[in-house]
Design a protein around this nucleic acid. Structure first.
Lengths: 173, 173
DNA sequence: CCTACCGATCGGTAGG
DNA sequence: CCTACCGATCGGTAGG
């Protein structure tokens, strides 16, 4: 519901109606509205963190690490479509955990940039604008949830192949 | 303010404080909170519409049309950073104009896909998944506002070159 | 998990 | 552009 209407616009009464309870009864299951947002977003932050940590310590060339990160993000998106949809904009409504969430995202992006730089140094990637390329790849992945929820019939292996090809090799002949 | 806090979370009292008025006085300048969102988003819808209409009727190869659309989107983003930031998620809070806004977006996407298909047929683009590629390119462009607002020092011509290169030719050597 | 209800805050209006 | 204020609705609590 946060996904469709946004965190602020979704009321506890909306949620109660959806699960078939009176609004007051919700508080036997959760501590607050904020709590729901926190648990969804911090769970994701952990998944992204696991992915980057695991990838960094693998003994493979940077370009392969890049592919690994793209594939991990596709898996995370597919397995958490609703939660992932909150990442682009609803994280601004985090309260206590906002700083922690931003830190985690910055760590992820820094590691991503480092891998990009190494891949350029290895001559596997062309000389490119690191900042712009990081943004370009990550923003496509950040939005994948919206595409996937409209195209769930696509084979996942095919999706992984096509999307990493698009992001790394481009679309020109 | 809609951009930073979201439409719902931004109150008329917030806006009044920002412009140095009492909340009630705002209504001498606008009809409603909804009105502000509408005018920002429908103005953008018109800009995107102009871009696609102008591009379609030009007598240039599809691959060039694609480049033209990318460059137009970069220009629109740079000239309307705040308004563009509402496109990814805040449009859901449109009321009367929501349907019209969605229609416009669908028209844009349909035209974009058609151009992609023609470019594939011309052998300028490799055989690719039209839906996935449309999503991939447009989601990067849809998010450009957030990158640009953090990197305003970048030369605009350079940005156009680098980004269209990334999106069309990829990043591999 | 419910009924009953709270203080706070919302978008907006009346009237000057 | 202000003071004063409205009905509606919000997240959440008390008490059972």
């Amino acid at each position: 519901m946060f996904r469709k209407r946004g965190y602020t616009a979704t009321t506890m009464r909306d949620i109660a109606r959806e699960v078939g309870m009176e609004p007051a009864s919700l508080y036997n299951h959760i501590r607050s509205k904020q709590d729901i947002l926190e648990s969804a977003l911090m769970h994701l932050a952990n998944l992204y963190n696991d992915s980057i940590q695991n990838t960094i310590k693998q003994n493979i060339p940077p370009i392969k690490k890049l592919e690994q990160l793209i594939i991990d993000q596709i898996d995370i998106t597919i397995n958490n479509v609703d939660a992932v949809s909150l990442v682009p904009s609803e994280w601004v409504h985090l309260e206590q955990f906002k700083g922690k969430f931003i830190d985690r995202r910055n760590e992820y992006e820094s590691s991503f940039k480092l891998i990009l730089k190494q891949a350029v140094k290895d001559n596997d990637l062309r000389s490119l604008d690191i900042e712009l390329t990081t943004f370009s790849i990550l923003s496509t992945l950040r939005y994948l949830h919206s595409w996937y929820s409209r195209n769930k019939e696509m084979d996942i292996e095919n999706l992984k192949n096509e999307l990493s090809k698009n992001l790394l090799e481009g679309i020109k002949n």
